[in-house]
Amino acid sequence: MLIMISKRIGFMVLTMLVVSILLFLLLEYSPGNVAVKVLGPYSSEEARQLWLERHGYFEPLWWRYGSWLGNFINGEFGDSVRFRVPVSEVLWPRLWNTAILGFWTFAIMIPLSLILGVLAGMREGSRLDRIISVGSIITTSVPEFASTVLLSAIFVFGLKWLPGTSSMTSGFEVKQMILPVMVLIIYDFGYVARMTRASMAEVMTTHYIRTAILKGLPYRQVIMKHALRNALIAPFTVIMLQINWLLSGVIVVEFFFAYKGFGALLLEASLNQDIFVIEACAMVAVFVAVASQTIADIGYTYLNPRIRFT
């Protein structure tokens, strides 16, 4: 078990190193481009050379990569071109905002989709199953940019219950969170629910569920104790993948509602060629992706004893 965890973590570090090399080569291979991005297209050649020299860009490539990596590990990502402050000062608050958004989305979506998925899969082909299956397909197939417009039209312009923007200019406000969270849940829950449903339906046809029923256990216990745990093994991986999706997939929602989150930051940085912000965001995104999958792998072995003890 210990070996397995350390192997996974080692693999995770390796993945991040490879990504960092690719990222570095892609964005910083030619120093001239960096200078143009930082100083702007109308800067003088002289100023660029001076900037490059001051920031050690005439050192050999591997040396530059080494110090770049060292800085990254220490959390020094350089200065944002657009905000004129160190990247970390912009990045962490934005990441935190997205984390809040993601947390609420998850906290509501996961129980909802698991419950609906289990209810549907429990009696495959029943009326409840068909309602849930069709419902989840419909909500999932409506893209976020469509549902944002639709929900805004209803709740902001029609009923006037909720604010149309979520920029939190006057401090955190729960009301402003509702629409973004709602859009994300509506889009994603069907995916997880359908996955859970399929897994649950499969488990319900297994022989050990028959054994449990013919043992005379109450139906509730058959579901809760015997079916659920086995049915959750497959969706668990999918759920962990949603973390990943939330981080970069929220761009549309954050932009639409002017929510100051990670996705919006990434979009702004790309539009403004804010090179160091892009680098930092990319590395954070990769880290979250790899870390969540590592946790998923470890959690998977916990759920599935056949993998745990071999």
Binding site: I213, G216, R229
Partner: peptide
């Protein structure tokens, strides 16, 4: 339900499939 497993019990063909793998 009260009769199943208490007064009538069953033994199955494939024991591996009849037992819950994660309990």
């Amino acid at each position: 339900r009260q009769i199943r497993g208490s007064e009538i019990a069953m033994i199955y063909q494939e024991p591996m499939a009849a037992l819950n793998p994660s309990l």
